[in-house]
Design a protein around this nucleic acid. Structure first.
Length: 516
RNA sequence: GCGCCCAUAGCUCAGCCGGUAGAGCAAUCGCCUUUUAAGCGACAGGUCGCAGGUUCGAACCCUGCUGGGCGCACCA
């Protein structure tokens, strides 16, 4: 919408200042600056006993506030640690004063000076020398927070338009430093996962992102093309099939943290590329994996939030193990009285129809889809506390191994927190003939028009034919985990650069729109 | 893909029943040597998202388009 190259009168003014600086022989973009302290460290350094003889410091940062008073000037410098006030006095900076007069909000500067305390008590740096490190040619959309005498605050301006915030994430972070904390939390959670799995003998691996066949989940892929081979390639929708090939090859414990890509709708909980953690362990079953998930999730919560009890979206949650376990079928029966193993589809449709679904939609539901709807309207909304749902019916779980005690079920669990699925795990299907049959069945659904049905992966079946040991596997959505940790309800708030439509006027590319 | 809502100055917003736009902050200029929303004074800044239509006249009403938000659908 806004041409990024179009200059406002404010930018024009800043470019004029840049020219004036250069005419004075001042480089608007310096090369380096040696700091002695961060802003936060400088503030922490202060001791009232210092009186007028505070230590000399060298600090750098972005000018976050500027209050000129003629022959004197106050400013706040902001760096990665926080902010500190600086005080500039003309008679003590004389040769450099023309530079000071050409400073703008948002410029990066470096200063040297002594620590002191102002009349109003704020620890500040009395600047003896100032250097311009980087001129800002575009003003950041800063707000101003006014604190009124009664303690309330009024915000003047500021960056609030969600579109601009996501498109210009750099400006959003620059103006809202507290947002960076969510990504520190994210990094801590991922670092914890690595330590957790490494300590248990897992090997971190990297499997192909570009795949000749996509599989391991039901989703539409992104398609690209390899020029040299002149063939289509797909961005992976899951890591699963490659990681299990590694199990066949003798890597007994492997994990991967990486992006999967799904060519589907975008909303509060879906980004076209997202971060998935998958791990597989030979000779383990889904209950082994369940215990690991429980320990890992509690560990992450403890590590990132300090403590196991937290309110999320107004709901107090307790992450102390053991988490509740409920069987899929019995859980649903307890809530709505339907036994999904024996009930007729008519009975289930009748129930779903009472839950606000349109009659038309209900009429077309059958099989796995219908089961899923029953679950969605009965058990799932009640899963606020961390809860494992176990033993899904086969129709819902084409990739999981048949349950050892009940052939109608599979050995599968999902972890729910606050009604959202966090993890999905199986005792992995390792019977190559069964796997081939399921691929063939998927192939028939594909021919019937199901774009998401999986393709036959003959190489994967060949791997299974060599013999894959019994294996437990888990997939855990990192973005959703971080949403839980940071109490965000939009996945965009935990992804640095969420997917957006391109900005700008696209009428320049005619005929692109009306094809359909 | 469908529905509802939104788009006005660099930012945040106001603009009633149609009469061609205002405020605060930021900017520019002047004054000000301990301020912190600094203050005081002056001056600028807009193709009202884009394209049509209705009208003597459109930021405002209608249609289409673009982008966004929320919900639904799709989807783990």
């Amino acid at each position: 919408m806004i041409d990024p190259l179009e200059r406002s009168y404010i930018e024009t003014a800043r470019r004029e200042k840049r020219a004036r600086l250069e005419a004075l022989g001042i480089r608007p973009f310096a090369y380096r600056f040696e700091r002695s302290h961060s802003a936060a460290a400088v503030v922490a350094l202060w001791d009232d006993a210092m009186g007028d003889a505070g230590p000399q410091v060298r600090i750098a940062g972005r000018i976050a506030a500027l209050r000129g008073q003629g022959k004197t000037m106050f400013a706040h410098l902001e760096d990665g640690s926080g902010r500190i006030q600086i005080y500039l006095k003309r008679d003590q900076l004389e040769p450099a004063w023309p530079l000071v007069e050409l400073l703008d909000l948002d410029d990066h500067i470096g200063v040297t000076g002594r620590l002191f305390r102002t009349r109003t008590g704020e620890v500040s740096v009395w600047v003896a020398a100032v250097e311009l490190l980087a001129k800002s040619l575009r003003s950041l959309p800063r707000g101003k927070v006014e604190k009124l005498a009664d303690g309330s605050t009024v915000v003047h301006g500021g960056l609030t338009d969600p579109e601009v915030r996501y498109r210009q994430r750099y400006a959003d972070f620059a103006v809202h430093p507290e947002l960076r904390d969510d990504f520190r939390t994210r990094a801590r959670a991922i670092a914890f996962v690595r330590r957790f799995l490494d300590a248990r003998g897992y090997l971190e691996v990297e499997t192909p992102v570009l795949q000749p066949l996509y599989g391991g989940a039901a989703a539409r892929p992104f398609v690209t093309h390899h020029n040299a081979l002149d063939m289509p390639l797909y961005l992976r929708i899951a890591d699963e099939l490659y990681l299990k090939r590694l199990i066949v090859g003798g890597f007994e414990r492997v994990y991967e943290i990486g992006h999967d890509f799904r060519n589907e709708g975008m909303d509060r909980t879906h980004n076209p590329e997202f971060t998935m953690l998958e791990w597989y362990q030979a000779y383990a079953d889904y209950i082994d994996m369940l215990e690991m998930v429980q320990e890992m999730v509690s560990g992450i919560v403890q590590e990132c939030l300090g403590g196991l009890e937290h309110v999320r979206h107004g709901v107090p949650l307790n992450f102390a193990p053991p988490y509740r376990r409920v069987s899929f079928c019995e859980g649903i029966k307890a809530v709505c009285g339907i036994d999904v193993l024996t009930a007729s589809e008519e009975e289930m449709r009748a129930f779903v129809a009472t839950q606000g679904e349109s009659l038309e939609a209900v009429r077309t539901m059958s099989g796995g889809r219908l089961l899923d709807e029953v679950f969605k309207h009965s058990l799932e909304p009640r899963l606020a506390q961390p809860t494992f749902v176990l033993d899904y019916p086969k129709a819902l779980s084409p990739l999981a191994k048949t349950h050892r005690d009940d052939a109608r079920l599979t050995e599968r669990f999902e972890l729910f927190v606050n009604g959202t699925e966090l993890a999905n795990a199986f005792s992995e299907l390792n019977d190559p003939d069964d796997q081939r049959a399921r691929f063939e069945d998927q192939g028939r659904q594909r021919e019937a028009g199901d774009e998401e049905a999986q393709q036959m992966d003959a190489d994967y079946v060949r791997a299974l034919e060599y013999g894959m040991p019994p294996t437990g596997g888990v997939g855990l959505g990192i973005d959703r985990l971080v949403m839980l940790l940071t109490d965000h309800s939009s996945i965009r708030d935990v992804i640095l650069f969420p997917a957006m439509r391109p900005e700008g006027d696209r009428r320049a590319s005619p005929d692109a729109d009306d094809a359909g």
